[in-house]
Amino acid sequence: MTDVTRRDRARADTERDIRHTAHKLLVEQGREAVTLRAIARVLGITAPALYRYYASRDALLQELCRDVCADLTATAQLAMDNVPAADGPGRVSAICRSFRSWSLAHPQEFSLVFGSPKEPSALRTEWHPADDPFARVFLGLMARFFAETGGIVDTEGQSIDWVPPDLVDDLREYEYVLREVLEEMGAEIRGFPLNLAVIHLSLQWWVRLYGHVALEVFGAFPFALSDSEALFETLLEDLAKSTGVSG
């Protein structure tokens, strides 16, 4: 093994130790406890030494966000893979339920990734759904389902092909991203275009799913619920009926 290889491996090991310690502090004490000084104290090194690995606390939090998103994405992917590929509605429900269960089990990680403030110096200043690994998988799954099945119907069985004019430009930008995601997923679109209506409905699913889960994780429902899971299942049923996602 060359000196360069040994140095690279040692650096990788140290970076892993730093992120592991940061994650432990996050889970046990919350985001504010994740500081370079605290991490250095746990690892037995000086705080300035950490700057050789991460330029700032925000840079470290960005990497921690990526680690958390990778874990969430893997969890959702596993849940989806446990449902037969031919069962589109079942796979949609599986990924939605896995997102909720993971979020409730990991409130600090959820808060870091999905609840960070938008400030000029914040790590998520220019975030939008397509930047998030989990949102990419979720939106890609929904777009694939709608595109392959043509399942874009309202509660009366009529095709939905209208989108709000003010959203057209934004949805066109998402179209390019979702096409990349579908290619990564190996999707084959069988004669049904990935149009703006598909993207609009996919985004509606994500917004409503995220909204419910965020309220539940942060305990922000306007009144106490004895069975929030029942409300979540009602949400899924309503979304399924309004967008044609039914078994």
Rank of each mutant, 00 (worst) to 15 (best):
E188H: 15
F138G: 02
I152Q: 14
S93A: 12
A105P: 03
A74G: 05
R179M: 08
R66F: 14
P117G: 04
A85S: 09
I95W: 01
R57N: 12
Q158I: 08
L78W: 02
S93D: 02
A94N: 00
E173Q: 12
C96E: 06
M80Q: 10
L201Y: 08
V198F: 04
V137Q: 12
N82H: 13
T149M: 00
A122Q: 09
L60S: 09
V153G: 00
E119S: 14
L61S: 05
C69W: 07
G157T: 06
M142T: 00
S98G: 03
A135Q: 02
H106Y: 11
L171Q: 12
P84R: 11
L203F: 07
L194E: 00
R179T: 04
R179G: 14
T75K: 06
D166K: 15
P193R: 10
A74K: 01
A147G: 04
C69F: 04
I160R: 11
I152M: 12
N82W: 00
V177I: 07
M80L: 13
S159K: 15
R144H: 06
S116V: 09
I160C: 13
E188R: 14
E109T: 05
S103H: 07
L141D: 05
F134W: 01
L123C: 01
Q108A: 02
A143T: 02
G140L: 06
V153C: 08
A143V: 06
L139A: 02
A187I: 14
V168L: 15
A143I: 06
P84L: 11
D132L: 11
S159D: 01
V137H: 02
C65D: 06
E109K: 01
M80R: 13
I160E: 13
F138R: 05
L203E: 05
A135M: 06
R172N: 11
S93W: 08
E188I: 15
F134Y: 11
G150A: 01
D131L: 14
V177T: 11
L123Q: 10
A187M: 03
S101N: 10
L64G: 00
R124C: 12
Q62A: 01
V163L: 11
P165E: 02
H128F: 06
I189P: 09
A70E: 13
W102I: 08
D154R: 08
M142S: 01
F114W: 10
Y174W: 15
R136K: 10
P164F: 08
T125V: 10
R57C: 04
C65Q: 04
S101I: 05
D67M: 07
V68L: 13
L194D: 01
R190I: 04
L104I: 04
V83R: 04
E173K: 02
V113I: 08
F138Y: 11
L72R: 10
F145P: 02
